[in-house]
């Protein structure tokens, strides 16, 4: 589904990604972990077509990034650090806007479904700028799912969520993967990520330094291995 070979990303003189190789199949779920500043967000932004690779090749379902970015964007649902929502619009208006932008058929029904899914149906007519951080994150997740994308690219999606919302997001992501969607998620919470995804990739020094199958190793051992890779 996603194939990355020898990916390089430079910001000026600084090389953030140094020949990164990554592969994830259809319906697979992968969490990318690494220390702050190792390039997790940069990598996800490249997959999301928001940042141009400096070298190497990136493709999604056989479509190359950046040359076939429009086709790739149709397939992806993205959650970034910021919610990508307009504060002066209500939750419903924000979703209506994105539904039109993504040309979602039966937009109104889909908006109702999404608001129900993220637990914001009661606050649908409130302005987003009056939302708490957690509520904005819930709506950002709803925005990313609105056009039923094949691939979910979530950058630390649990930030700011309360316990209820964490349970909601866990269920949403598990359901999405069970439906055959592909999930790539950046995270700092290894134990939580291990319970959610099938594989954990550790990003260190601009490369995927280690890859762990979650079904083959207990969480405690994964944590030790993570520490050995990132601090070794």
């Amino acid at each position: 589904m996603i194939e990355v070979r020898n990916l390089v990303k430079n910001f000026g003189w600084k090389r953030v990604l140094r020949g990164l190789d990554f592969r994830v199949g259809r319906g697979e779920s992968v969490a990318i972990l690494g220390l702050n500043g190792t390039g997790k967000t940069t990598f996800l932004r490249i997959l999301a077509t928001l940042s141009r690779p400096s070298g190497g090749s990136v493709s999604m379902a056989g479509q190359a990034i950046p040359s076939q970015s429009i086709q790739v964007r149709r397939r992806i649902g993205v959650v970034l650090h910021q919610p990508l929502l307009y504060g002066d619009l209500t939750a419903e208006e924000n979703l209506r806007y994105y539904a039109r932008m993504y040309d979602v058929q039966s937009g109104k029904t889909r908006i109702d479904e999404v608001l129900d899914l993220v637990g914001l149906e009661m606050q649908r007519r409130e302005l987003v700028r009056k939302y708490s951080r957690g509520m904005q994150q819930r709506l950002a997740i709803g925005r990313a799912l609105l056009h039923t994308p094949d691939v979910l690219l979530f950058d630390e999606p649990y930030t700011g969520l309360d316990t209820d919302a964490v349970i909601m997001l866990d269920a949403v992501l598990k359901d999405a993967v069970s439906q055959g969607r592909t999930l790539v998620m950046a995270s700092h919470d290894l134990p939580h990520a291990a319970g959610l995804v099938s594989r954990i990739d550790i990003l260190s020094k601009g490369r995927i330094a280690d890859s762990i199958s979650c079904s083959e190793m207990p969480v405690g051992e994964m944590v030790l291995r993570y520490k050995a890779v990132t601090h070794g």
């Binding site: 928001l50 429009i70 086709q71 970034l80 929502l85 504060g87 932008m101 993504y102």
Partner: peptide, 16 residues
């Protein structure tokens, strides 16, 4: 206004 809350990224993610 587009830059606030990352809305510019939201625009750039749209498949058009």
């Amino acid at each position: 206004i587009e830059k606030d809350r990352g809305c510019l990224d939201g625009l750039l993610l749209v498949p058009v």
